[in-house]
Design a protein around this nucleic acid. Sequence first.
DNA 1: TAAATAAGGATATCCTTTGTCCTTGATAGG
DNA 2: CCTATCAAGGACAAAGGATATCCTTATTTA
Lengths: 162, 162
Amino acid sequence: MILKSQVEWALHCCAILAGLPDGRYLSTKALAEFHGLPKEYLSKALQGLSQAGLVDTSLGPSGGYRLAKPPAELTFLEIVEAVEGRQRTFVCTNIRANNPCRPKDHCESSPCAVARIMWEADEAWRAKLRGVKLSDLVGILSQEVAPELWKSSFEWVLERAG
Amino acid sequence: MILKSQVEWALHCCAILAGLPDGRYLSTKALAEFHGLPKEYLSKALQGLSQAGLVDTSLGPSGGYRLAKPPAELTFLEIVEAVEGRQRTFVCTNIRANNPCRPKDHCESSPCAVARIMWEADEAWRAKLRGVKLSDLVGILSQEVAPELWKSSFEWVLERAG
DNA sequence: TAAATAAGGATATCCTTTGTCCTTGATAGG
DNA sequence: CCTATCAAGGACAAAGGATATCCTTATTTA
Ligand code: SF4
Ligand code: SF4
């Protein structure tokens, strides 16, 4: 069970978009080039962000993506779910229904304890991601990334932001 | 990102094995029949439990599986990891290394903030599973499963336990 | 008008999961 | 000792999802 690599891509892209000046857009092409990713496939991840309403888009030259809300209001969970989907990581195939001792008319209405426990763990994972804002990430990165690299990356992006 | 169905199978099988009298074994055949699962494929999941040291095995007629330790000392996490593996759900492909602004001699030693945050969420999931014992599950099931079904299932198992 | 862009459909490739089949070596019971 | 039964595991096939590419369409900006 491994998350799609698109999750990593989307998070990185959002971190970049968070540094974009108001009203400007950054294209898929620029984001793909900056991260060394296949443009067409990265596009699918960005479309996921768009469909989830996390980013705004603009067409034509100088078009691209920008965040739909401030980084402080955008959580990791939203980004992860936009790309990875909202389905729980544990799915019940209801194998208890195959119990040979089970009467024909027997019908369990609610999910069994196994599923509930696994779903609680799933929710703990989501709660952790829900508690981290995109602005938190930017704050950490701004402290950890080497200043000259931080600056040159910012300028690289600005040159290409429409 | 969805857990293997074998995780559900292994948890159910452990719950059954937890009710086995001391010193007796239950075969793959019986476990597969009880849950309505393909015997050969369920065998792979049970081999995972065996390799992780969670169950003891015995060969020959009246052989099979039994728990290697009391249900109160067996956690959900152990069972899940025995089948699903211990790899983290978020893997870093280090796309930051593709940054065109990155100097040739630049070398990030430690994982970046994105990975650390995702790994913290992963650990929250594991911590939740680590906190649930197999005995907890048996306790809940013994209260929730209809008494007559519980009893007949127990007898069904006992008839086939070697 | 022309170039650039997002959106998305179609398709191909690779890998994981799921599932089956068979062999091997060990063991209990007769 | 003999035989049926068992776990272990290798080989292999089918199905589905992830990854990746290519192309078309509608839209917008310069
Ligand atoms: S364990 Fe939960 S999920 Fe699996 S069958 Fe029983 S109820 Fe369904
Ligand atoms: S985000 Fe974390 S995982 Fe992804 S590249 Fe940067 S460091 Fe590696």
